[in-house]
Design a protein around this nucleic acid. Structure first.
Length: 300
DNA sequence: CAATCAGCCTGAGAGC
DNA sequence: TGCTCTCAGGCTGATT
């Protein structure tokens, strides 16, 4: 499930592969994947791709006509690029039953949008539509933006002190780009239980949390992201972050810090992985009392 | 206001 | 082997 590191990895690769290319033909299967349909296809033909970048978990292709092609991969979306030089092992898998769109570009280059579950969407936006877009226009700050600091996060989160920290981090209006995997990972690194109330977190804890968020995102970027099932780099390869994840997908396995088995629960409907010892809930548990065992704060 | 849940979808994996 | 059930989770919008 693409989150910030996966989307950034894809956007960077697309920028290198697609800049300057002209859109020569576009095919789509169902309007759900491309709501503008044939009218959108007509607007796309002949446009040059000038830049490709990321905002939150969205990928934006800036076109020579000043319009923007917005791609959100949601859960199972993939963007793949093939050229005549691509390995046969990749080319022979395309198109397939998950292929929703195909962009034929100049220099015999093809951009494929695959999306098994059809949650993802490609939308063509005019400059005005882009400014007003309900997702883009309400995104919180980007955790990797050098202008953004722990203080930024603290200020934003403290607007709703009764909210629990995990859903608050998943809320893209607060901070853009985190999803389930890196939320769990960052909360573990910071030693914070996912159900802690925002208002119960000290300034020092929020500072640590912000640094942990940056740490896991940066680490994952260096690994090409996390592949659980569907996510692929644009050349079809898999990301390697999960091989050394701290808690995500490690239910029952020993904590990398204290060897306590990692637990999994549901927090606001999301599978949530944590170490019950390193991430204590403290006095916050209303019913079952949790021993206030303070987890070690050693950097792994 | 906060929390939960349904809906959008399909395929992998578990359990029988 | 083959069937059914559960689960995965980004985001929106409705309900509790």
């Amino acid at each position: 499930m693409p989150e910030l590191p996966e989307v950034q990895t894809i956007a960077t690769a697309l920028h290198a592969a697609l800049c300057g290319k002209i859109i020569e033909a576009v095919r789509f299967d169902v309007p759900r994947s491309f709501p503008q349909g044939e009218e959108g296809v007509r607007r796309l033909i002949g446009q040059r791709i000038d830049t490709v970048h990321r905002e939150g978990k969205a990928i934006l292709l800036e076109l020579s006509c000043q319009e923007t092609l917005l791609i959100h991969l949601r859960m199972t979306g993939q963007l793949l690029v093939t050229t005549p030089q691509s390995p046969e092992s990749l080319k022979e898998t395309l198109p397939n039953s998950s292929t929703r769109m195909e962009f034929s570009l100049s220099k015999e280059c093809t951009l494929w949008f695959n999306d098994t579950r059809r949650f993802g969407q490609v939308t063509l936006l005019t400059p005005l539509e882009r400014t007003l877009h309900p997702y883009l226009s309400t995104l919180g700050p980007d955790p990797l933006d050098p202008e953004v600091s722990a203080k930024t996060l603290e200020t934003i989160l403290q607007r709703r002190p009764t909210h629990r920290i995990k859903p608050a981090l998943l809320d893209q209006h607060n901070l853009a780009g985190l999803g389930n995997i890196y939320c769990d990972e960052a909360l573990f690194l910071a030693g914070i239980h996912p159900e802690r109330r925002v208002g119960s977190l000290s300034s020092a804890e929020l500072h640590r949390l912000f640094e942990s968020i940056r740490e896991v995102l940066t680490l994952s970027l260096s690994k090409g992201g996390s592949t659980r099932r569907d996510y692929r780099l644009v050349d079809g390869k898999e990301g390697r972050y999960l091989e050394e994840a701290f808690v995500y997908g490690r239910t029952g396995a020993p904590c990398r810090r204290c060897n306590t088995p990692i637990e999994k629960s549901k927090v606001s409907g999301r599978g949530t992985h944590f170490c019950p010892r390193c991430q204590s809930l403290g006095q916050e548990a209303p019913s079952s009392s949790t021993p206030a065992s303070k987890g070690g704060r050693n950097t792994p």
